[in-house]
Design a protein around this nucleic acid. Sequence first.
DNA 1: AATAAATGCAACCGCGCGGAT
DNA 2: GATCCGCGCGGTTGCATTTAT
Length: 307
Amino acid sequence: MGRSPCCAEDADVKKGPWTPEEDQKLLDCINEHGHGNWRALPKLAGLNRCGKSCRLRWTNYLRPDIKRGKFTEEEERDIIKLHAVLGNKWSRIATHLPGRTDNEIKNYWNTQIRKKLLNMGIDPHTHKPRTDLNHLLNLSHLLCSSHPWDTAFKLQVDAAQLAKTQLLQNLLNIISTNFASQNPYPFQGFLDGTSTLSDKQLAPTPLNITENAGATSQNPWADFAGGLNNEGKLGIDNQSLITSVVQTENPLPDLVSESLDQTSPINHMVKMADAATYEAWEKLIMEDDDDDDGSCWKEFLDLSSST
DNA sequence: AATAAATGCAACCGCGCGGAT
DNA sequence: GATCCGCGCGGTTGCATTTAT
């Protein structure tokens, strides 16, 4: 025979929100006896609750090391980076964010980050650009003709902000171009040195903001230098931004998707990847984050929330 | 001010893994 | 080796609060 059933099978245990009295009982009990055996704990604490419910209350709310309050930008970046490698492994992600619970991170992802990524044109499942045309059209619409800076306003708009917006638009152009040519990894060339973009394409070219703002470029990089300085050179913010974007795309293995095609070879590879591989990627990402000033995600998230 | 809709979050549900019997 | 269950996890639900109309 195995063990006896948990929670005394359909016992009339209380469910729903915890009262302060219940919290105190649970705290007192754990302080006195620890929480080695969740099943036995409710009885020990004098609680009419399932052990599972007690464990959840402790890990998600009562634990003394839980950090309360809003997520910082750094935490947000870490979550995004880790999610790109680990997928919805919230508990694994939580191990890199001291004081945050998996439940809290999961909720934050679903309510905040997910929306931001979608607004940025990034698929939150794959961390790759969204390819549906409707979205690209909507984003382009937002960035271009219908935007308030269509007329005199654009003469006054902050040049750096405009540069960022144009950069995003150009990135979308590149992405859509590469997708159109069946290239699922638009930044792969930067990784292996076989970039399909020439130095000429990458080089900044002068741009008349008043004429070109909102125009759709045939060459994705041709008017990349929007918002540049008087010499027509790319501003340092944009240089670091594009570098960050490329670097952020590069270090990752095939990204984890929640909706992987079960028959695809890639999915098979993902399944076969051993835990050590992912741990190595986790480590790499977190180390990379130490060296990174975080400008990439911050810029993107700021930009996203301002549109 | 009243109501509806949207949002955020705590808690529950169900499943899989691994250990105990 | 087979069976059973504790535990932890990810997904989902439901309620309270906030925002929009």
